[in-house]
Simulated assay, not measured.
Amino acid sequence: MPVRSVLCFGDSNTHGQIPGRGPLERYDRPTRWPGVLQAELGSKWYVIEEGLSGRTTVHDDPIEGAHKNGRTYLRPCIQSHTVLDLVIIMLGTNDLKVRFNKPASEVAMGMGCLIYDIRELAPGPGGSVPEIMIVAPPPMLDDIKEWKSIFAGGPEKSRQLALEFEIMADSLGVHFFNAGAVCQCDEADGFHLNADAHRTLGIALAQEIEAIGWSVAEHQR
């Protein structure tokens, strides 16, 4: 049976940045949720990690750089890793920075743009549209330490993301998962996942993927 491929496209919580540490300090592959996902799914799946600290849905970052724009990078990323059976996107937290001044509803619209781009590229088997899953990141904690000014108003908006993402997923007919239902951010900085949260999330997403219901006929290359 052919090996299926899943692209995990996200920000620092996909990259595995350790809470309270810098962007260069990350958990090892087996600890990060995509690594946990690989272990849970086994050899019948190939899990591709694409996490970047500071990545947004559709915004060039005027401070950290235009390369933080998830939409700009998604297209070459998908074409690089085609063929893909599933694309998981977990973004949105960085869109809540004051410099972007966006409500949760517009962050969801940015997510919708990424879905449209994936469908246009059709990187699935035989030029089909792959399965797509939007994952709402866990809400930020109220105490986000020294990040308070950068994410002013962010914690409240972050609690609205899951609902807005679910509405967007329903309207576009893609899968949705609320990471906040199974894990939470670490108190060290208030918006990154610790090792336990990565493990819990990876296991939960493996169950969600298995529940999609895959058939051999849909996977002919």
Rank of each mutant, 00 (worst) to 15 (best):
G42E: 05
P138A: 15
D186K: 07
V216S: 12
W33K: 03
F151P: 01
P76Y: 06
L91C: 04
W214G: 11
G153S: 10
G22S: 15
N101E: 11
K148P: 04
T14K: 01
G42C: 12
G126N: 11
A197N: 10
C183H: 10
V47W: 00
Y116G: 13
P130H: 12
G110N: 04
S43C: 08
M1R: 09
V87D: 05
S158D: 06
K148Q: 09
Q17G: 02
V135F: 09
V58R: 10
F151C: 08
D196M: 10
F176S: 05
D95G: 02
L52N: 03
D85T: 07
E156A: 11
G173R: 13
S53F: 05
L193I: 14
I134N: 01
Y27V: 11
T31M: 10
P155E: 04
L74D: 01
K44G: 15
E49L: 11
V107K: 00
E106S: 11
D60I: 03
T200H: 11
C8L: 05
I134F: 06
H59W: 05
E50A: 04
P130Y: 08
A104S: 08
N13E: 12
A122Q: 06
I212L: 15
Y46P: 04
G16Q: 06
D60W: 02
I18H: 02
